[in-house]
Nucleic acid binder design. Structure first.
Lengths: 134, 134
DNA sequence: ATCCTTAAGGATATTGTATATCCGCAATGC
DNA sequence: GCATTGCGGATATACAATATCCTTAAGGAT
């Protein structure tokens, strides 16, 4: 279970943008050169940040990106979730229901929304603890 | 960032083995049938658990797996790390060092073991919080 | 002793996702 | 008008996850 390159890039880009002079924009090319990462691919991560409302952009010469709000109002979680998505790190596929010994009625009562299995609960708690730290 | 099928299987297998009569073994085939997952692939996860000393195995008829110690001495983290590995969820690739504006001396002083960059520190703290919950 | 069963581990095929690039479009500033 | 830039779609490539197969060695039953 590992976070991808784009997440690291997005975090560092935000750090750079946080130090940018007010009103200025920084284009993708500069951010890419600055970090030594592929410009076109980094662009995807920046677009995700843009759609999440973390950064805002302007077109044309002297265009680029800047933070959409004060740095202290942007959390690591904001950036990570914008790029990586919001799906929890553990997905319960209800494999307990595959037990061939169970009757259909028993299957239906397993891992319902009201009472997820204990394993999923623990994994989800840990996932929440992780996100709370970001 | 998502945990894979084998991790979920391993957790459920340990749960099943925890309810096994003392001294008994449960073969891979039964665990696979019970959970409706491919036997050969599940076998790899069980081998990982075995190598980690979480379960122990016996060959021959009536062979299979059982827990190597009491269930309350096996944590979720033990199982997850045995199957998924121990590499942290965030890996710092030191992209700050790629900055073409930096002198070689400055590059060397960035993201050293003694003083990793602030971003990596936060991500590692979150990773630790996640593992502490497991 | 022989045969069946089982885990262990290597090799390999298949699938899927991450990575990376390219192109056309629309908007901005000169 | 023109160069620049972000945006989104489409597509190619690389790599990891998934899944299966096969051989080996060991335990148990007859």
């Amino acid at each position: 279970m590992q976070l991808r390159g784009p997440v690291e890039w997005a975090l560092h880009c935000c750090a750079v943008l946080a130090g940018l002079a007010p009103g200025r924009y920084l284009p993708t090319r500069d951010l890419a050169d600055f970090h030594g990462v592929p410009k076109e691919y980094l662009s995807k991560a920046l677009q995700a940040l843009s759609q999440a409302g973390i950064v805002e952009s302007t077109l044309g010469p002297s265009g680029g990106y800047r933070l959409a709000r004060a740095p202290d109002r942007i959390t690591f979680l904001d950036v990570v979730e914008a790029v990586e998505g919001r799906t929890p790190s553990f997905v319960c596929t209800n494999i307990r229901r595959n037990n061939p010994c169970l009757s259909p009625a028993e299957v239906k009562s397993l891992c319902t929304d009201a009472k997820p299995c204990a394993i999923a609960r623990v994994m989800w708690d840990a996932d929440r603890a992780w996100r709370d730290k970001l």
